[in-house]
Each structure stands twice: as structure tokens, then as C-alpha cells.
Amino acid sequence: MKSVPTTLRQLMRDRSAALGFFLVVLVVVAAILAPWISPHPEAVWDMNPANRLKPPSRTWLFGTDRMGADIFSRVLFGARITLMIALVAVGASLLIGVPIGLWAGWSEWWIGEALMRVSDVFLAVPQIVLAIAIAQTLGPSIENVILALSVTYWPWFARLVYAEVRALKRETFIEAAIALGVPPRRIVLQHVLPNVASPIIVRASIGMGFTILTAASLGFLGLGAPPPAPEWGRMISESREFLPETWWYALAPGVAIFIVVMGFNLLGDGLRDVLDPRLRRSHDR
């Protein structure tokens, strides 16, 4: 692994990667500071029919929704829900997928191969379809959205790590470690894992964007966090009744989703260029 400062410096040299990094930081900061930068923190959850469907103005930056809540504040607080869902789902997928991939790729035992066939089944069906099925069955809640996303996203990591480990196993330095008498567990954890860390990080970053998009879709379909949680997907869904007159209602959460997903994708692409060992040489020299 390269050191974090080196990686960052190289990332900043690439304009689109720097933009992605900036957008992600922007969303993360917004989520963390939501209670302080929100102009109407009280108007996120409360019903206030008097202020219903107000267009954007100096008081209501992005306008208000059908309950009279401040859309700007709701978008800020929505960032927290979105990031939390994506972080937990991608984290859980990592925790499930990476060990399975490492083990299946290293041992080449039939059970590992069988697990890989299971992951093929998951990968063959679009993630959103499986996630809808799971979320629908379990009922709408944030926990179930996270569960649905984790269960459907781990095969990506398992598959990726599996392929990388299979390739690494034939590397001379792994063979040398075997000849040196290094125990397999140590080889996998200290030699193999650090060498597959880069593609895992890249996939995790792109996976964040992907997961946020799927989570928003679930929210849009009413399978996400129940009202009145400020979930972006559901905010867009609610706005449909009032379109096209109240254009601001859908605009703010839509742009928010766009920004965060694009941010993670650009960041992931940039990280791939900087970290991926197969491309690293051309960047170093």
C-alpha cells in the first residue's frame, strides 16, 4: 500500500478525481455539520402547514415541502441517512465478501468454489431486483434497506478478491513465501491481503455510489426509511404529486443524489488509476 499522503497527492493531480474527492468531502462535511448549518433544524421533522410548498427564497433556500418543512435542512439531514446506509452496507459487504473471496481463492476447495457459484447467482440478477424483493419481504425500515443492500452487494467483493487471489497465487513472491515455510494463514493475511487492498478500496468507493443509488431507488419505491425521515429517494417520490408546479421539491434531493453518486464514482475511478497495480507503473514514471 502506498501511504495516504502520496495517494492523495497523486489523486489531486487528476482533475476529475480531485472533483470527486471534493464532492465526497462536501457531502460528508454537510452530513456531519447538518444540525449547525441547517437554517431551520426544527423544521426538518415538524409539520407546519402554514409554510407549505413555498418556493425557494432567502428564508427557504430550496423551498418547502408538502408538510411545510425546509427542504434545504431535510437534504442536509438526508445526507446523514444516505451516508450511514451506504457505509454500513458497503462495510458489511466487505466483511462478508473479502474473507470469502480470500478463502475461496486461496484454498481452491470445492466449498469455496460452491460459494463462488452462489455469488454468480447474485451477480446474474440485477441488484435492485433482489434488494426490492428482500426489502419488500422484510418491510420498510432503514435496517432492512441496509440488510437488503449488504446481502446483495457482497458478491462483488467476493468475486473481485477471489480473482485477485487466484492471480496472486501464481506470483513468485507468494511461491517464495511458501518455500520459506511461511504458514498459509500468514501468507494470506500479510502478503495476499495487502496486495489486493487497492482494488478493494477502488471497488468500495464505486460501491458507495452504487449503493446510494440503489438505496435512493428503494426509498423512491417506498421501501426505505418510513416518513417523516428525510430520505432523498422518498422526497423525490413525494414530490411527484406536486410536479411540475413545485419544481424545487424534486430538484434539491435529486441534485444531492447526483452529487454524491458522481463524487464517489469519480473518486473511485481516480483511485483506480492511482492504486491499481496494473496501472501504477505508468503513473509513477
Partner: peptide, 10 residues
């Protein structure tokens, strides 16, 4: 190994 450069973890 024949190729000692590749026999070391990069």
C-alpha cells in the same frame, strides 16, 4: 528463485 526481484513482496 530464478527471479529474485519478483520473489520479494513488492
Amino acid at each position: 528463485h530464478q527471479d529474485p526481484g519478483n520473489a520479494l513482496d513488492p
